[in-house]
Nucleic acid binder design. Structure first.
Length: 438
RNA sequence: GUGACCGUAGUUCAAUCGGUAGAGCACCAGAUUGUGGAUCUGGAUGUUGCGGGUUCAAGUCCCGUCGGUCACCCCA
């Protein structure tokens, strides 16, 4: 025997996109593209392989390095498959820093890979929409990104009840820690980690974590008070010149004035990882009980291109992955049922008719802008041809046989209505168009 | 990296205490030689993920491995 066959399953944590899967992905990414381009964002792209140093240099996180696919090429260059898009954009921006007109509004839709254990909402390869504003420090950019997110969600019919957009600010957080808790810089780091975990771990674990990290009982008490306080009360505790306060107040008054505030809320516990973010941070949560998780998030970082240039470029943006988003769409029933196949017309064939007639008809339809297939096996029974047409979801089948050629006509058949009629070659296109519209 | 559960036909699943693997759907052919969703008739299909062990006998028990799912870890 020929031995064993190769496995047909895709590599762990990656997915095959069969035509129906591709339709879904194309559907939502093109919708996203529409929204983002209406905001005047420009698309960019980059290579899937980058120098390993591009990632290794960045903040030197061991864990990130463990999640990077890397290897050596034939010229002994150390390469990595991109695990995120930001270093690539940073490189691109830095490379043309003097030529680009800031602020930039850029977006990309790219596939990324990370070596990790697949689980719900997270695979080894995923596709992600990245949207950023570069070179603008003011909160107008922050506001724009947040309103863009709301519009993005709305484009899919997601209303405020389906998701939460929670917003905070790293500067504000740091100010509160310093002024209210009198926390030292190292303590702030520890506290932010504990706060980040707060919703996931038990009350006891949370308190132990803080105590074990050298946070005094007084500080813990203050922290409890902070969480019980409103945004306004917290602001009152901070100096009048607090930048964090000014940014959050400015941002929220803009959101209120434009009506976007009904989708947004202040949430002191939103922190989004570390170091990276310096100002506004935000996170979008799914509100459905089955999927109470973060869909995506982002924030402001002060220096995007420090690795490449002396000049600092501030930016704000987010990355929105397809895996979590698909879960979201499914749970909230936001995927349209009629993401149909692309073919509009199938041309049925007969053995006793010259094939060139079908080639001509097909070309005639294409010129008219009607996508079509010729049934290739002319000896196949009509039952088989029609079954095929039905399974493929062709709304219309056209018959062209000896009789029709003699009469200068075609038979067009409306599959869903199970009706058909004979129409002259001069008029069938118009009739067909009418059918395809409805 | 740690832990839990799962892996049987294309698919969804069944198989009693360990006793020689079966059903629905789907598929193919025909009833219908130029007309599809129903019905009827017939048909094909498995190294039970893989490798080893225990046993007279393993889909079933044990070990390993690969794959899937989920949680932890981590998070763009």
């Amino acid at each position: 025997m020929g031995g064993t066959f190769l496995a047909t399953n895709p590599y762990k944590g990656t997915r095959d996109f069969y035509p129906e899967d591709m339709r879904l992905r194309n559907w939502f990414f093109s919708k996203m593209r529409d929204v983002v381009e209406q905001y005047g964002y420009e698309e960019y792209g980059g290579p899937i392989l980058e120098s390993f140093d591009l990632y290794a240099a960045k903040s030197g996180q061991e864990l990130v390095n463990e999640q990077i696919y890397h290897f050596e090429d034939k010229g002994n260059r150390r390469l990595a498959i991109r695990p995120e898009m930001t270093p690539t954009v940073a490189r691109m921006v830095a490379s043309r820093i003097n030529e680009l007109a800031f602020p930039l509004r850029w977006y990309s839709i790219a596939n990324l890979m990370r070596y990790e254990r697949p689980q719900k909402g997270r695979l080894r390869e995923h596709w992600q929409l990245n949207v950023d504003v570069f070179g603008e420090e003011g909160i107008h950019a922050d506001f724009e990104i947040l309103s863009l997110i709301v519009d993005l969600m709305q484009a899919f019919g997601a209303d405020g009840g389906m998701y939460n957009l929670r917003i905070s600010n790293r500067r504000f957080f740091n100010d509160v820690m310093r002024e209210v808790l009198k926390a030292a810089p190292e303590q702030i780091h520890v506290i932010s980690k504990a706060v980040d975990k707060r919703s996931k771990i038990s009350e006891e674990e949370y308190r132990n974590w803080l105590a074990d990290s050298g946070i005094s009982p007084e500080q813990v008490a203050q922290l409890d008070k902070v969480f019980a306080s409103s945004f306004e009360e917290l602001c009152a505790c901070l100096p009048a010149d607090s930048r964090g306060v000014a940014e959050l107040q400015g941002l929220f008054s803009l959101l209120e004035e434009t009506g976007f505030n009904s989708f947004c809320e202040f949430d002191f516990s939103v922190l989004r990882g570390f170091d990276y973010y310096t100002g506004t941070v935000f996170e979008v949560f799914d509100t459905s009980p089955e999927n109470r998780r973060s869909l995506f998030g982002g924030g402001r970082y002060d220096d995007l291109i420090g690795l490449f240039s002396k000049q600092a470029v501030s930016g704000i943006g987010f990355g929105f992955g397809d895996v979590t988003f698909q879960d979201f769409l499914q749970i909230h029933n936001l995927i349209p049922a009629d993401l149909a196949a692309t073919g509009e017309v199938m041309i049925a064939t007969f053995e006793d008719t010259p094939y060139r007639e079908y080639a001509r008809l097909s070309s005639e339809l294409r010129s008219a802008g009607i996508a079509n297939n010729i049934y290739l096996d002319v000896s196949a029974k009509m039952k088989k041809q029609l079954t095929y047409a039905e399974r493929k979801g062709f709304p219309v089948v056209v018959f062209l046989g000896r009789q029709e050629i003699e009469d200068g006509a075609v038979v067009i058949k409306h599959m869903a209505r199970r009706e058909q009629e004979t129409v002259s070659r001069g008029e069938y296109l118009e009739k067909l168009r009418g059918w395809l519209k409805s």
